[in-house]
Nucleic acid binder design. Structure first.
Lengths: 224, 224
DNA sequence: CGCAGCGTTGATATGGATCAACAGAAGTGG
DNA sequence: CCACTTCTGTTGATCCATATCAACGCTGCG
């Protein structure tokens, strides 16, 4: 990022915001005037059916952008919920178009992020559409593991893992009971252990094999 | 679109390309030097597991962009297959970055398209993760119906519908047999009829209700 | 004529949902 | 400090939506 771009982004920034676990950062169909970047904590994008069924579309980790869709369409088609307490960098939405005009290469980076986020959703769609329960859970864990590792949030194969089993179930299109049993089976096979919000991946290789995990999404990312 | 932008896009265009039904326009992990716009015909983006299970991520209709991901990541994470015979407008990929630099607002439109395409995938993820078979088929049909209507490709509630049942099954994460039985049931209920690649939607309202269809994706779109 | 691709239909199997009950942990108010 | 509630996780029993298997029919084509 050039110095000029950096200065531009700084000027773009309004401040920071702190939100409690469980609250909605963005509600479905809402349009607020800000875009965010997740600075610390975990969040989840999700959509719901009117009878309450819920599907988590993707997990957001530090560095991810929140509210791009809302910025482009003037209202979000999905909601975003804080999974843990969360701190966000806040940017002004009105100046979003300005970014494309004045710093075209930053505009390109935004497109990069949009495409990247689509790639993750696609990957989740493949999982939910065509993998069985064990494969789904294995895939989910490996892919989160790798993302966290890239952020240097894994040490000794162990990471913070603040998701409830209900949330895992909603991400994978499974019932909570079956999710529980599947997790337990992976534990019995010594592939993972999960206690008090700490996850250890003992045997990534076997998980990859079970999940038919295909590395997939590029690791390089623009700084924004 | 300003005249200047129009001229730019024209200069960007390399030519046209015609492809037969069934061929891959873009293969998984391939990187070719072009980006396309679907000018006529239907196509499908899909991903596969190594044992052959296949998930269709989205149906592409005339006007949709093909290969954006490939342009941004230098290789595609999904493949794109022509469902019918297809004609494509071909653009040069190397000049893609140039577009952002010289015509920032076209860059914004590209981001718009990326976000739009993500919204469709998200919608499909919700479908596959949380709707049952009837709901899935109903949702799939209504949403295609509406997209085709916006393109003025529906007359008398009837449209060309070139998908095989295998393809519908792969889009919805169902088996082909169950897809067949579900379609049949919708037919018996007088909601649709589907014969020789022609689909008639007799009762959109009931389908919407079954699917809990939520209009969702914006209809305005930039010209590109 | 024979084959290949697609659709159709019934019989059977099963993965995962649903139901029900309970256990532990953490918070809350008295 | 103790009841009480709420949230999350655990486990077994049962049910059912969907997958799988197996045949067959139709159509178009070389």
């Amino acid at each position: 990022m050039t110095e000029e771009e950096l200065r531009f982004v700084e000027g773009f920034k309004v401040g920071e915001r702190y939100m409690r676990a469980g609250t909605d950062i963005i509600a479905e169909n809402e349009h607020d005037q800000y875009i965010y970047t997740l600075y610390a904590g975990w969040a989840a994008r999700y959509r719901t059916l009117d009878d309450g069924r819920k599907q988590i579309l993707g997990i957001l980790l530090p560095g991810d952008m929140v509210g791009l869709q809302a910025a482009i369409f003037h209202e979000a088609l999905h909601a975003v919920q804080a999974i843990t307490d969360v701190t966000l960098c806040v940017f002004q939405k009105e100046r979003f178009v300005e970014l494309f005009r004045k710093q075209p290469m930053l505009g390109f980076d935004v497109t990069w992020l949009a495409a990247h986020s689509e790639a993750i959703v696609e990957s989740n769609l493949l999982t939910v559409g065509r993998r069985n329960a064990v494969e789904r859970v294995a895939h989910f864990i490996v892919s989160l593991h790798d993302r966290l590792e890239a952020l240097d949030l894994v040490s000794e194969k162990t990471m913070r893992f603040p998701l409830t089993q209900q949330q895992i179930a909603d991400a994978l299109g499974l019932s909570i009971v079956h999710t529980n049993k599947t997790l337990k089976r992976l534990g019995e096979r010594q592939l993972i252990s999960l206690h008090s919000r700490q996850l250890t991946v003992h045997d990534r290789a076997t998980l990859v094999e079970i999940a038919r995990y295909d590395d997939e999404v590029a690791k390089v990312r623009p700084m924004i």
